[in-house]
Design a protein around this nucleic acid. Sequence first.
DNA 1: ACCTGAACACCGTTCAAGT
DNA 2: ACCTGAACACCGTTCAAGT
Lengths: 186, 186
Amino acid sequence: MGTRDGKILLTREDWIRAALGAIGEGGVNAVAVERLAKTLGASRGSFYWHFRDRADLIDAALELWARKNTAELVPELDAITDPVQRLRTLLRSVYEQPVDAVELTLSAASDDPVVAPVFARVTRQRIDFLHRIFTDLGLPPSQAAARAWLAYAFYIGHHQLGKNPEASELRPDRLDRVVELLTRGK
Amino acid sequence: MGTRDGKILLTREDWIRAALGAIGEGGVNAVAVERLAKTLGASRGSFYWHFRDRADLIDAALELWARKNTAELVPELDAITDPVQRLRTLLRSVYEQPVDAVELTLSAASDDPVVAPVFARVTRQRIDFLHRIFTDLGLPPSQAAARAWLAYAFYIGHHQLGKNPEASELRPDRLDRVVELLTRGK
DNA sequence: ACCTGAACACCGTTCAAGT
DNA sequence: ACCTGAACACCGTTCAAGT
C-alpha cells in the first residue's frame, strides 16, 4: 500500500485479502466488486486496473488459500510415522470448531468454473496423502485407493453436514469409531 | 394455466416448475426473477402476486423436490428386507449417472437460510433410514449411529466430489469395497 | 383476482479522462 | 502507473394503476 499526493494506493494483495474475508463470511457470492471497493475506499474502476474481472480476483484468492493451507499442511502431517496416528490427527481437524470457512466454500462451490481447478488440485493432493496412509498400513494399492476415497468423501461430507446445525446434532461425539472402521481389517 | 382475454394466466406451480429447472441447471443463484419472468412471458411484478419474495419461491421449489424425492423413496427401500442389500441399492443410486442436479444444489447450499431447514429435514430422514439398516444388521444403537453418520457423510461427500470431473477420476470404479467396509464386523 | 410498467437500489464491466 | 466517474445492462423489490 503506497501513497501519492496523500492518497492511498491499493495493491493486488489488498483486494485479495478483502476477497478472502468476504468468501469466509458469505461464500463466493459475497465477493462483490462494488462492496469491496466501498470497503477499501476506492472506485470500481480502480479494481479493473488490478484484475481482469471478478473471476480473476476469486481465482487469485483461492490460489493463495490453497498454498497457505494444503501445501504447507501435508508435509507436516507426513512427518508423523504411525499411519493410524497420522489419520487420527488429520480427522481431528475435521472435528475442530470452527471449521475453516474458505474450506467450506471451496467444496460447496466445486462446480463453479473458477473454483473447480483449485478444488481438483487440492483434492488430488489430499487423496494422495490418504492413499499413503493406507499403503503404510499394509493394504494393497487398490484397497488403499477405495479406502482413501471413502475417507475423503467422508471428510467432505462431514464438513458439509457440519454447516447445518440440525444435521450436525446427529453426528457421533467421538471420532474413535470412525477411525477404527477406516483402519481396520486386512 | 388459465386464460383470460386470450392472455395466459400463470399459477404458483408454473413459477415453481421453472425455478426447479433453473436450480437443476445453475444452482440456487440461477433462480432470477427477471429471467424466469422473461421465460414465462410475464412481468416481474406479476411474480410478486404469487410469492412474497425470491426466497419464498426457492423454498416452495425445494419443498416440492423433497416430497417427491425423499419421502417417496424411503418407504420403497424399506421394503427390501436384507439390510446389506438395502444399503447396496441405496449406494448404487449414488454411483448412477447423472446425479440429481437438485440434490447437489441442496447439499452445496445447505447453509443458505432458505435451503437449511429443508436440508435438515431430509438429512434426518435419511440418517434414520441408515440407522435402521445397521441395527437390522445387529449393531448396538451407538455403533449403528456412528456408522450411519459415516455412511451419510460419505454419500454427501461422494456427491460433492462427483461434481468435479478431475476429482471423480480418483474414485474407485466398484462400490463393493465401500459396502463391505461399511457393513463389516460386529 | 391477477397483471403491467415505472421506479429505485445494487452490481459487473467498459472506457474516456484525469494525475 | 494507477485511479475516477459516467455509462450500460442485469437483477430484486415496491407500488400505483390497469383489467
